[in-house]
């Protein structure tokens, strides 16, 4: 049934937003992490790359004029923010360098909060789209009553 298509697209978007939300949680949790496990300096802010992928489906689905141009969203990569770390003077910090400066992660908490609102709202929009698709299908079934 074709209303499944819109549910599948909404599902892909919800997965993508969930990945983004995970990354935001990670960024916020590590906003003050001055070490990495591999020994390479402070934590680096991470961001997801979203790609619009043409809807893969059966051959007849691909040939269907109405389904042409439809795209789901996929997370095709997680990139590290390469901006320089925040430098703070704190000689008592165990990770301070010889001059007493500490490299803190390049995470801006306010920016992360704004990203979080964006991720939440986008997720909600996709939930609403899925609900609308479902209620359209149910309304159609009411035709028979």
């Amino acid at each position: 049934m074709d209303f499944f298509t819109s549910l599948d697209i909404s599902s892909s978007a919800m997965s993508a937003e969930r990945t983004r939300m995970n990354l935001i949680s990670s960024n916020l949790a590590n906003a003050n992490s001055t070490r990495s496990v591999d020994g390479g300096g402070p934590y680096k802010r991470k961001d997801a790359v979203f790609t619009a992928t043409p809807l893969a489906g059966s051959f007849s689905n691909a040939m269907n004029q109405a389904n042409r141009g439809l795209a789901r969203v996929d997370v095709t990569g997680i990139v590290e923010d390469s901006t320089s770390p925040r430098i703070q003077y704190d000689p008592t910090h165990p990770d301070a360098d010889a001059k007493g400066y500490v490299s803190l992660p390049n995470v801006n908490v306010i920016e992360e909060m704004a990203d979080m609102i964006s991720a939440t709202r986008t997720y909600e929009a996709n939930v609403t789209a899925a609900q609308a698709a479902k209620s359209m299908a149910l309304k159609t079934l009411e035709l028979g009553r």
Binding site: M1, F3, F4, L7, D8, S10, S11, M14, S15, R18, V127, A130, K134, A137, L138, L141
Partner: peptide
Amino acid sequence: GLHEVMLAMEKSGV
């Protein structure tokens, strides 16, 4: 994927 479960349930329900 909580949403995948919910959507699978909705699909079967409809």
